[in-house]
């Protein structure tokens, strides 16, 4: 199973320290949240969407993402437009601002899983000041995903070999109950394996002193420029 949609990329965005990318996203999201003015929101949406090709993320990679996000945005804007009070002009203005806000929020955050290598999430959070333990928990969660997905597939195959038929037509409660023979063994398997991982961490004196993180990058001039761009977006949104 492919973990997230990450693959190694080239270009200016990929060369940036992950912390700068996360901070740019955080600034973009913050700027979007502080304003309902369509003019700065349009700027933010353009910047957010422009980051996607700059990050060398292709249309093929994000088409599913775009489909789902587009579906949600269209539905939410439609329902809000339908129920929002005020004159038709006010309703149109609100719908426009809401669409730009949601496009901006989704586009700013969308590139991160495509461009940050899964094992780098822990070091990135640690570099941003999050505690060693929480950063390691995030990294461990990301590392567990392919293992658990494999366990899940193996359990489904094993239960199918014993005659379980998930596709058989039946009522909703019966169909949900059919998940129990899959959920229970996977969960117990995960908990037991987790005990071994925790024992291994204890044996290596995890938490006894500050942890070291491999492959830490430098927050240099380029990263400061990117941070400056993010802060100017926030200032633009506040000033508008």
């Amino acid at each position: 199973m492919q973990v997230f949609q990450y693959r190694e990329r080239t270009g200016a965005y990929a060369a940036l320290d992950e912390r700068a990318r996360v901070l740019l996203t955080a600034c973009g999201v913050l700027a979007t949240l502080v304003t309902w003015n369509p003019a700065p929101l349009a700027v933010l949406a353009v910047v957010a969407v422009a980051i996607v090709p700059l990050a060398r993320v292709s249309w093929v990679e994000i088409r599913r993402f775009v489909f789902f996000a587009g579906f949600v945005i269209t539905l939410l804007v439609f329902f809000t437009w339908l129920t929002h009070g005020g004159t038709p002009d006010e309703r149109r203005a609100h719908a426009l601002a809401q669409s730009l806000r949601m496009v901006s929020l989704v586009a700013f955050t969308a590139v991160l899983p495509f461009t940050i290598e899964p094992p780098r999430w822990g070091a990135t959070f640690r570099g941003l000041g999050v505690s060693d333990r929480l950063s390691f928990a995030v990294e461990l969660a990301v590392r567990f995903v392919p293992t658990f997905a494999e366990r899940f597939e193996r359990t489904v195959r094993a239960q199918s070999a014993r005659g379980m038929d998930l596709s058989a037509r039946s009522g909703p409660i019966r169909r949900l109950r059919k998940l129990v023979p899959i959920l229970v063994p996977v969960l117990l398997d995960v908990i037991v394996a987790g005990e071994d991982v925790a024992d291994a961490m204890d044996l290596r004196a995890f938490g006894a002193r500050p942890r070291t993180w491999s492959g830490t990058r430098r927050f240099g001039g380029r990263e400061r420029v990117v941070l400056g761009l993010g802060l100017s977006l926030v200032a633009l949104a506040i000033a508008a």
């Binding site: 969660a141 394996a193 991982v197 961490m201």
Partner: peptide, 16 residues
């Protein structure tokens, strides 16, 4: 370490 592993296990399992 146990809490960290349980947090990570829960998150990964819920994600999958």
């Amino acid at each position: 370490s146990r809490a960290i592993v349980r947090m990570a296990s829960g998150a990964a399992l819920y994600g999958v």
